[in-house]
């Protein structure tokens, strides 16, 4: 009897963890797209990208202070999904213009070090804005789960009070929270949109051409600087979308979150093969699963070590990732 209960419990929670992992993975994939797009075009590991995401979260946090009460707040969410990505992409374009653009001809490690510097500056901005302690959003934008389920539970308890203890031992019934539905509803259209943009539009063709060979692209009359700026803008949009969804899902933010989440996302990009868009999605999901299942079965303290271990092993044995193609270093 005991064993049977345990088995059922463990299966249910396992599926819940897998689901959580997939959802977190979708978030990481959104951030990873920013890394992968930029790396694909100018071969720069944009360290500052995670912190652009962090500032997006900070902006969401401040905007949520003006949010209306619950039923009307559902109109407010699309507004958030519009404002925050635009701000993030403007920030990304500005960073590109001020910091990376003058360094285009410098050796490869120079912009990387600058990106570290930008990351520190953005961390400092975030720290000024929200202080050093973690903050959580107060406003309630989405319909709450807990009220609903506890109300259900009360009626059930009234009718079948003898099953009350069994009801408590079960994990929460709702698999998907409203925030998760928002996440799915944001991620899938965003990624589809990107795939269509890159595949079928003229500007997407220009992006692919620049990624293959910037000089040849320039010779063919493509405005390479414009393409680079557009890439940064797209990365910013995805970081902004991820920031809104993350803030509404996790509800707690702090000024150092950009570094960790950015590194997870970068690992995701590498896992899938840097420069490959489907690779970023696949890598994001894998990292999300490691993140979620590792926290349960290995221990929360070791999650980072697991993810970075994955990063190291991949970079050593298959630097091109799962979907990337191997390119020999040119002289």
């Amino acid at each position: 009897m005991d064993l049977c209960l345990f088995a059922e419990f463990s299966f249910q929670s396992l599926s819940q963890y897998v689901l959580n992992g997939l959802l977190m993975g979708a978030l990481f994939a959104l951030i990873a797209l920013g890394y992968t797009l930029v790396y694909g075009i100018i071969e720069l590991v944009n360290f500052a990208h995670g912190d652009v995401f962090m500032l997006g979260c900070v902006l969401t946090y401040f905007l949520c202070m003006f949010a209306p009460e619950y039923p009307t707040s559902l109109i407010f969410i699309p507004l958030l999904l519009l404002i925050v990505p635009i701000c993030c992409s403007l920030l990304n374009i500005t960073i590109n213009y001020l910091v990376y653009r003058p360094l285009r001809k410098a050796p490869r490690l120079v912009p990387l070090v600058s990106a570290l510097g930008v990351s520190f500056v953005l961390i400092n901005v975030g720290q000024m804005a929200i202080g050093t302690s973690p903050k959580s959003i107060q406003a309630q934008l989405l319909p709450s789960e807990t009220n609903q389920s506890s109300a259900n539970r009360e009626t059930e308890n009234a009718t079948r009070s003898n099953e009350a203890s069994e009801e408590l031992t079960r994990p929460r019934r709702s698999w998907l929270t409203w925030a998760d539905i928002l996440l799915i509803g944001t991620v899938i259209p965003a990624m589809t949109g990107l795939a269509l943009l890159v595949k079928f539009t003229k500007i997407g063709k220009a992006m692919r051409a620049t990624a293959q060979n910037p000089i040849a692209a320039r010779l063919m009359g493509i405005n390479v600087e414009f393409v680079i700026a557009l890439t940064f803008a797209l990365g910013g949009i995805f970081a902004g979308l991820a920031a809104v969804v993350f803030t509404l899902k996790i509800t707690t933010i702090d000024y150092l979150m950009g570094y960790k989440n950015g590194l997870y996302a970068f690992t995701a990009a590498v896992v899938g093969g840097v420069g490959s868009i489907p690779g970023a999605v696949l890598g994001g999901i894998l990292i999300g699963l490691i993140y979620s299942l590792g926290a349960v079965y290995i221990g929360g303290a070791w999650v980072d070590a697991c993810i970075f271990g994955t990063l190291i092993i991949l970079l050593v044995f298959r630097p091109s990732g799962i979907l990337g193609t191997r390119v020999r270093e040119k002289v």
């Binding site: 071969e43 720069l44 590991v45 490869r108 490690l109 990387l112 590194l263 970068f266 590498v270 303290a301 070791w302 980072d304 070590a305 970075f308 271990g309 990063l311 190291i312 970079l315 050593v316 630097p319 270093e329």
Partner: peptide
């Protein structure tokens, strides 16, 4: 030693990852 053959930017990330792992090990 195993990662020395990596390119500059990948080497940077791998050493960063090592640092995080070392901190975790020291902590745990």
């Amino acid at each position: 030693a195993p990662v020395l053959r990596l390119r500059g930017d990948y080497f940077a990330l791998v050493t960063l990852g090592f640092c995080e792992i070392v901190v975790t090990v020291l902590k745990e």
